[in-house]
Design a protein around this nucleic acid. Structure first.
Lengths: 221, 221
DNA sequence: TGTACATCAGTGAACGCGCGTTCACTGATGTAC
DNA sequence: TGTACATCAGTGAACGCGCGTTCACTGATGTAC
């Protein structure tokens, strides 16, 4: 079948992209090589022409997902006034749509706990991407030192991803909404300007509707 | 071998207890029936005299872990002045010791994401225990409505468990400590009295050392 | 430009292994008499 | 109280299945001449 060089790169990218969705949906061990290849329109035998092992694909797929999330946040921040950037990110993250579609969502709530148990190589690849994500988010916080900004960013991510894990455990009923609301309020309170009034104004002065628009969600993580 | 009735109950309890440790360490799918039985000093063939299926053990083990955590918090709260209870719980939760010993730690960061993907039966069992845990923590928050207390409690748990997942991904070096500190500060800020001054007083007036004592950690979750 | 050969992405059967589950069996102890 | 039998928690071999990985093969296309 001898394909051109670009063809192989495209195929490789397609496998990674599809796998990053399926692995977030099913877990790092929840889907096999054969099904992952089938999902990319191939048969399982060709897998090792692209990856040294299943684990190598898991790493690539995970890196892909994290890069997409970080890039998404960067773009969302770009088109939002500086003092509302963190709130915009939180609003777009803590939604029923994100809770119900882990395959296209943030990789941390979907795979974080499992990755922490993987080989050092896999865990470190994840940690490096998490570090980048924190840096990107920290860069959106005005008027504080890098150190303080990173601290805030790490806390916001922890609150958001923890909330999403709990909301998914809770299903999609009232209990889940309660958790989502609690997490949103907590993250926004911390994400708001230093005077800590934004939490109240945000929910009542109509700033949020624009930020939670379906368009933003359609972009996905 | 015909044993007495209590003997079977004891054996059953021992399997559940040991499994609850090993499953938190290795993940909901990270260890097999044979190894779980071996861990309890038995051979795998006897498993089905105690459980209908592997999944049934996972549910029992998980319920056991959550009950222990909730009970631990209740006891810790009992021996702490009301206005410091939440801080005491946060301080005992966000530690390197807890990060490094998932087997004896909170089941939510260890198993939450995986359980959210299990059968409705398993997920609902987890959700019910999470609900109980939120209620227990909410009961420690003075001077607010039950609804508001539950909201705060849910947010504190989300921040704590999210922080622990991220800290585990980050390993056990500087990066991990940074995350732990960020999460602790964020959770304590929210957990403190309504005037939001406790965060500063806590870290400087020597209240914390007593609360983070090794003794509390030795009790485990 | 045309032809013969080499390449290698992709195929599908097969491998060895570990898993959850089943099953015939054991034998110490509970129970009926 | 003593004896014969029934019970059933626990054993260890075996099952069927799915998994990650290997391998001989294919055939369309790149490349050398």
């Amino acid at each position: 079948m001898r394909y051109s060089r670009e063809h192989k790169l495209e195929t490789h990218a397609r496998i990674v992209k599809r796998a990053s969705v399926r692995l977030r949906e099913k877990g790092a061990h929840g889907i096999g090589v054969a099904d992952l290849m089938k999902d990319a329109g191939l048969t399982h035998g060709g897998f090792y022409a692209h990856f040294d092992s299943r684990e190598a694909l898991v790493i690539e797929a995970f890196v892909h997902a994290m890069d997409r999330s970080t890039e998404r946040w960067r773009k969302l921040a770009e088109q939002t006034p500086p003092d509302q950037r963190m709130a915009a990110i939180v609003d777009s993250y803590l939604t029923p749509a994100h809770r119900d579609d882990p395959g296209h969502g943030c990789a941390i709530p979907a795979l974080g706990a499992e990755i922490a148990r993987e080989s050092p190589k896999t865990r470190k690849a994840f940690a490096a991407k998490l570090d980048q994500m924190i840096d990107m988010l920290a860069a959106q916080i005005p008027d504080v030192s890098r150190k303080a900004a990173r601290k805030q960013a790490a806390a916001v991510i922890a609150t958001m991803m923890g909330t999403l894990v709990m909301a998914r455990v809770a299903g999609n009923g009232e209990f889940s909404e309660e958790i989502l609301n609690a997490g949103r309020e907590a993250a926004l309170g911390r994400a708001a300007s230093s005077k800590r009034v934004a939490k109240n104004t945000a929910s009542k002065k109509g700033r949020r509707p624009a930020l939670t628009s379906r368009r933003l969600l359609a972009l996905r993580y």
